[in-house]
Design a protein around this nucleic acid. Sequence first.
DNA 1: TTTTGGCACTCGTGTGCGCAGAGTGCCAGG
DNA 2: CCTGGCACTCTGCGCACACGAGTGCCAAAA
Lengths: 344, 344
Amino acid sequence: MAGEVRQLDDRKLAVLRAIVQDYVGTEEPVGSKALVERHNLGVSPATVRNDMAALEEEGYIHQPHTSAGRIPTDKGYRLFVDKLAEVKPMSAPERRAIRHFLDGAVDLDDVVARTVRLLAQLTRQVAVVQYPSLTRSTVRHIELVALAPAKVMLVLITNTGRVEQRMVDCPGTVGETLLADLRARINARAAGQRLPDVPGLLEDLPATFEQIDRPTVSTVLATLFEALAEQNEERIMLAGTANLTRLGHDFPLTIQPVLEALEEQVVLLRLLGETTDAAMTVRIGRENAYEGLNSTSVVSVGYGSGDESVAKLGVIGPTRMDYPGTMGAVRAVARYVGQILAES
Amino acid sequence: MAGEVRQLDDRKLAVLRAIVQDYVGTEEPVGSKALVERHNLGVSPATVRNDMAALEEEGYIHQPHTSAGRIPTDKGYRLFVDKLAEVKPMSAPERRAIRHFLDGAVDLDDVVARTVRLLAQLTRQVAVVQYPSLTRSTVRHIELVALAPAKVMLVLITNTGRVEQRMVDCPGTVGETLLADLRARINARAAGQRLPDVPGLLEDLPATFEQIDRPTVSTVLATLFEALAEQNEERIMLAGTANLTRLGHDFPLTIQPVLEALEEQVVLLRLLGETTDAAMTVRIGRENAYEGLNSTSVVSVGYGSGDESVAKLGVIGPTRMDYPGTMGAVRAVARYVGQILAES
DNA sequence: TTTTGGCACTCGTGTGCGCAGAGTGCCAGG
DNA sequence: CCTGGCACTCTGCGCACACGAGTGCCAAAA
């Protein structure tokens, strides 16, 4: 342990920061001479070389070949993100553009679609946006519609504008009066409540009806509970896959598993799921559980209509990404989407 | 003209067919010797060479370098598809697998999602499926829900299971009686009708209400008509982009514009829009209007719940694709999706 | 103790050359 | 009209070689 925690003095950290910045810019291994030229470190290349040797010893950087410059390792990026980088705030024009672009949205689908495109464009990477989850939302309205004598459609509308519908096959004919009654009682209890709380609040509802109506009521409620529970319905939208082609020279090898991962909604959901709610999460290279994304980084953050996060969004890019800029864009977009949702 | 229509005798056509088949299989320019070996043409390589020269003269094939084999041109593929290829029917196990895979779907979203994944997997190419269009569908039910005194939600359910919702801000408070009345009258007239016909059928509805209610009725109807008209809402789902990585050696150059095209729903919609309704359409290389897809082919066909096509689906792949197999898969999937939709 | 300049060493990259192999076009003979 | 033979033209590959970037180490300077 004691050996691991060896201190890195300030200049070594500065060198690491410079390496990361240069490498992100040029995509080429960076050598000691180029470093002292581009950043005025005030020391000679030889000194930097010593520092680099130390950094390599500690596993923060790595050289592809003996006679090449250094590139940061995952661990190096990690240190950079944790200690050396500051999230770069968006400029005022950028903020205005974001705002303006999102303001044009007409419904929830459109909000999500615009958000994901915006994020892809801002970061020039692959963007992922999760639809506001049912779990965190509240009920705005629950509607029951008789489609046939024994067939009822159930429509669930959440405060985030999401609509779920289910068909219910009832045990017997359902009268319009019963339906109206049921609708009224359900909404009286459930409206404004958080989705996970609803089953508890409606549990004893069948008992308040006439004996003869109870099977129907129970059937409808069962379907409702099912719809509420079905978090599998978590949907995701993504954009910017074309940005993967800008990755680099070696990329047929690296792009394939990434594209495959992106097609698996399950993988993406798990990926976003690992985001801790409030704070921005950065997963670098092998920190990602999914193997296909071992050479990518994921920057994600929760967003929400109020003070609370209802879903997550993020971008996926090469580990050699512009972390400050990306994090700034992700944070800004999340913030504005939250505002838009709160307004609507 | 007379010069253009020079006849190609049967053997030349056989040679062209053989070239296409071999090139699709190997992805390498095919020479005269390999041709006579792999297909028993019963003639010598020299003879084939003469035929090839003729085919090249007519623009059906082309050689990359002087000392290389031949590859088909777009025109060559076109002739192959039109005259030389027969759609390869799916095998019985394949058909069963398709059927089984699609049968598991629970709602429209799921049907489309499964279809597109299936198609991508079968053809090992990029698959595109358009949601059943509103234009061709009929109204199953129109529901009105009061969310606030002057706020009504309108839900439109089509026979294909698609659900559209719109918020309506009414000029004044809307009573529950009026709403029920309006709901009943709308459905009486519109249920079972095709969407484009609905406005005509409801046009004079406001006149049948009390003077005082007419503004509200008109507002609701206006929103409904808007929802009906909004064909922009045509949605598309795609899958299999990872298959693009199997394209070949030269592919960073070719994959970029394709990915960009795939991100533009408008482009994809236009692409599918060019499909003539009933028959299968094959657009080869430069036949595609969109420039980014100049080195790809698009195989598309309409599908529908009844005898009529309500939307389209297809695949996008390299011009050097297995046309008979791809066309077989596309046709089979379209057929089964139609059946599924008809049943539900 | 830390920094610096100098120097030898390593190794990847680019270049030129030659060769083998595949495929063609053409021509004369069947 | 088909076929076998032959000369020709390319591409791709392997190889040798020089170049240059970058390093590591060491001894001297700060």
